[in-house]
């Protein structure tokens, strides 16, 4: 049967990773637009919150100890920091020169990465943030209000229909809907089958296709998932490189170089520029940067 714990674990083993149970640490990201880092750290320390700097992130900290929820402090409610898993903080940092750019966040809700983009852009330029579910856009609006984001327009729109907006983008974040991973969902192995993975991979290719059509020449796409399945990651990017006039750029970030030979399939050599993050100190994650090749 193409599902179940043993099935998926054996796939990970084939990819070179030995399964281990993980316990994720909560992480926060300082909104540098709203807070001066040293003074915020002092304020949180005075509340008895112990933080540890995440070595591979500029503004990220793990929460080591807190007597109460870090989502209920006045500093959080004032938008001085956000709660954002460590690996999830990586994608937005991979873009170059975000200031004054027109950026698409194609699958934006609940908005953690949208807020991070706005922070990196210092509220300049424009972010167009889409989500297919209206209910999730309300959560996104709340995040934007809490974090004092001023440069974002949100739409209740399927990412595959982005061309309706008639905008060409400099940068596109595709944090696409995916199958997730066992580190953040204790029932993951029970709930997921390879059919789900295939269905998500298909949707992700459709989103990639539509996104490249609205990307300017030389524009950048950062593609990420929190799935560990190659169909949603390396295979999709290999397909994109072969079909969508994009190339995989080298990135410097946490994670292993992605494999180029998977389950007997040989992928483009540039796929090694993608980063695969196995669960451990972070959740499982995959991220890469694509650049549109000039026509």
């Amino acid at each position: 049967m193409m599902s179940g714990r043993e099935f998926f674990i054996s796939r990970y083993q084939e990819l070179g990773w030995k399964y281990e149970d993980v316990e994720l640490k909560q992480a926060i990201r300082i909104n540098s637009m709203n807070a001066e880092k040293a003074s915020l750290l002092k304020r949180l320390e005075s509340r008895g919150i112990k933080l540890e700097k995440i070595p591979f992130l500029e503004d990220g900290y793990w929460v080591c100890k807190s007597e109460f929820s870090v989502g209920a402090t006045s500093e959080y409610l004032l938008g001085l920091y956000s709660i954002q898993e460590a690996a999830a903080q990586i994608p937005a940092t991979l873009f170059t020169g975000l200031k004054d750019k027109t950026v698409l966040d194609a699958c934006a809700a609940p908005g953690g990465k949208t807020v991070q983009l706005a922070d990196l852009m210092k509220n300049t330029g424009a972010i167009i943030a889409l989500d297919i579910e209206k209910r999730r856009l309300t959560a996104l609006s709340n995040q934007l209000e809490r974090c004092r984001v001023e440069n974002t327009i949100t739409y209740n729109l399927d990412a595959r229909q982005v061309s309706r907006l008639d905008i060409k983008f400099d940068r596109i974040l595709l944090d696409v809907p995916c199958s997730g991973n066992f580190a953040t969902d204790k029932d993951w192995f029970k709930r997921r089958t390879i059919t789900d993975v295939g269905r998500n991979a298909k949707l992700q290719r459709e989103i990639l296709t539509r996104a490249t059509r609205v990307l300017k020449d030389d524009g950048e796409i950062v593609y990420s998932t929190c799935s560990l399945e190659p169909e949603e990651n390396e295979f999709n990017i290999d397909w994109a490189v072969k079909n969508l006039n994009v190339q995989v750029e080298e990135v410097r970030c946490h994670g292993e170089k992605a494999p180029t030979s998977i389950f007997g399939k040989h992928l483009k050599g540039s796929i090694k520029n993608c980063r695969r993050i196995w669960p451990g100190r972070t959740q499982g994650f995959f991220v890469c940067k694509l650049k549109k090749v000039c026509a």
């Binding site: 167009i128 934007l144 209000e145 440069n151 974002t152 327009i153 949100t154």
Partner: peptide, 29 residues
């Protein structure tokens, strides 16, 4: 810039200033 880019059917744009319910204005933060 946002005004140039925003189409009529946006859900949220720029800075939300507040909302009006039954003639009463509720400010945003």
């Amino acid at each position: 810039n946002l005004k140039r880019l925003a189409s009529k059917d946006f859900f949220h744009a720029g800075i939300c200033l507040g909302k009006e319910i039954d003639g009463v204005f509720f400010p945003s933060f």
